[in-house]
């Protein structure tokens, strides 16, 4: 069975959940071979094995993570040439999509991005125009490269050998042209990553101020979820930009999405419409968000949300 390369998404050795989702998807397409870039594999190997990595190609050279994107692309291109895999899967994060795109240019291969599912033959499923259309696409030439949206495919364990093989690549000068001189890690706190969280609670215009976002945070914390914000809220400076859910922000696909004081403009819906269960609290009964919900309450969020938080905490 042909290999399917899975680029491991990790931060300093901590494997992102999307990697396990990619390994799960890769098992339908061939034999998963994880590609590890940078240091820190020791603590992560077990997890990759648990989710079906038959092999792990390890490129630990620090040079590969000292420059923007291009080194990972050259490594993957070399692995494609050497191992002739059936295809390559990456996470459809900002950087993952860039890796997919550059690799497609390098290999002159077709690329599918931000798919919510991938089936045998590397047929990708896309949810486009804010979830209004489901489209299937496939690659016509080259080695299929597919970037998969985090949280879209359920990760399932299926233990495999995870046999390590050290690999190295000689980088071109062009790959070393955008140098990362400093990494700035911003306080993440205890909450899960927005794009990986099973539960996301988002606040919008109705929240009214930065201080009031505490209501959203309290509800998210009661559910062990992540906090998101609509563009209205981030533009107003009530919550940091990186938590914006929507067309120009993050796309999330959690098991449960709770929209608080968000009207549900298309801009926002594009970023959350593939959530499995949707709940909304809004004082306007005509708010478009109610078209999407499984359960909605028309009411004052300052009454309803704290009561919900209290009720959840009571039931724990």
């Amino acid at each position: 069975m042909a290999e399917v390369l899975v680029l491991v998404d990790h931060v300093d050795g901590e494997v992102k959940k999307v990697t396990l989702e990619l390994l799960t998807a890769a098992r339908r397409l061939g034999e998963p071979a994880a590609v590890w870039v940078g240091p820190g594999l020791e603590g992560a190997k077990e997890k990759l094995a648990e989710y079906g990595a038959a092999k792990i190609y390890v490129a630990a050279d620090e040079e590969l993570t000292s420059y923007v994107v291009a080194p990972k692309v050259e490594l993957l291109a070399q692995l494609v040439a050497d191992k002739s895999p059936a295809g390559v899967l990456v996470a459809a994060t900002g950087e993952g999509k860039e890796i997919a795109g550059r690799l497609a240019v390098k290999l002159d291969s077709g690329v599918l991005t931000d798919v919510v599912d991938v089936a045998e033959g590397f047929v990708g499923e896309h949810s486009i125009f804010g979830g209004a259309i489901i489209a299937h696409a496939k690659v016509k030439r080259g080695t299929p490269i597919v970037a998969v949206r985090p949280n879209a495919i359920a990760a399932e364990p299926a233990p495999a050998a995870a046999a390590e093989e050290q690999v190295s690549v000689t980088l071109s000068d062009a790959a070393k042209s955008a140098k990362i001189v400093e990494r700035v890690v911003q306080e993440k706190g205890e909450r899960p990553d927005l794009t990986e969280a099973a539960v996301v609670v988002s606040g919008g215009r109705g929240v009214g101020s930065a201080e009031n976002f505490k209501i959203i945070e309290d509800l998210a914390d009661a559910l062990g979820g992540a906090v998101g914000a609509s563009r209205a809220a981030t533009d107003a400076g009530w919550y940091p930009h990186q938590f914006q859910v929507g067309q120009t922000g993050k796309t999330v696909s959690p098991q449960l999405y709770i929209a608080v004081g968000i009207s549900g403009a298309i801009q926002h819906r594009a970023g959350m419409q593939t959530s499995k269960t949707i709940v909304a609290i809004n004082k306007d009964p005509d708010a478009p968000i109610f078209e999407l919900v499984d359960f909605g309450v028309v009411g004052d969020l300052f009454q309803v949300a704290p009561q919900l938080t209290e009720e959840i905490n009571k039931r724990k």
Partner: peptide, 16 residues
């Protein structure tokens, strides 16, 4: 189509 209720003082409990 989901269920939409108007808060009558127990909206939070209903969501729970």
């Amino acid at each position: 189509k989901g269920q939409i209720v108007t808060d009558e003082g127990d909206g939070g409990v209903k969501i729970a």
